[in-house]
Amino acid sequence: MKKSILFLALVSVLGTTIAQKKKTTTSATISFDATTKLDALPKGDNKTVVASLDTKSGAVAFESVVKSFSFSNPKMQEHFNSPMWMDSDKFPKATFKGKITNVADVKFTTDGTYSATVTGDLTIHGVTKPVSTTASVVVSGKTVTTTSNFVIALADYGVNGAAIGAGKVSTDPKITVVAEFK
């Protein structure tokens, strides 16, 4: 009987320890800024991004529903989701799967701000390309907040259209990803 109770207590503690290593959120944010001197409207946000972070291995993943991006101008949102741009009916999701390569430098149990190098595969518009960037990781209690900024080339992902060619949309938009894991 004592062995059974000890075994259950051990399994419970191990389960809690393992569970704390993987953090998830359904409210990460991806901002897309493709503004140019000719047009300040190609700027949108998606605040319902699903993300996961494994604090032990450094594995990180994000999944975004393309139609969940919102723009201040409804016409811009229509263009963004059209076959000439993101073709969100055909390619409904954008994903990133990667890893913090210097995970040993990030002390997930100690409050502070850390610099992380993140590499992985970004899939947009059905095209997967390797991406490498830096991220800021802020640890505060049990909350971990990550922020990363990087630029992509729309042509690399087969995204084109008349507005891009006319200079109304940046060919190299800035992407900002923020996730708060609790």
Rank of each mutant, 00 (worst) to 15 (best):
S27I: 03
V144D: 08
T119Q: 06
T55N: 02
K21R: 10
T110P: 00
D156R: 01
A116D: 08
V137P: 07
T113Y: 02
I30H: 05
V65Y: 10
D89N: 03
S57C: 01
I124L: 15
N81T: 07
I124E: 11
A153N: 13
V66K: 12
K22R: 14
T36H: 11
T128C: 00
T95K: 09
L10V: 14
D39Y: 07
L38G: 11
K21A: 11
K21D: 04
T134E: 15
V178M: 09
I18N: 01
T29L: 08
P92G: 05
S170G: 00
F80L: 05
N81V: 04
E180L: 04
T123D: 08
V127Q: 06
L154K: 05
N160Q: 11
K142L: 10
I175C: 02
V131C: 02
D156H: 05
V138H: 05
A163P: 10
A162R: 14
T36M: 07
M76T: 09
I100T: 07
G120S: 09
P74T: 05
V11A: 15
S140Q: 13
G44M: 10
W85A: 15
A155S: 12
I175A: 02
S68E: 06
D54R: 13
V177R: 02
K67E: 07
T16S: 11
G161L: 06
F32S: 08
M86A: 15
K37Q: 14
F32E: 03
S170T: 03
S57A: 11
A116F: 08
A59K: 15
V106L: 01
A28I: 09
A163W: 13
T24M: 11
I5P: 02
F71L: 08
Y157T: 06
D87I: 10
S70R: 10
K2G: 06
T26A: 08
V151S: 12
K97N: 15
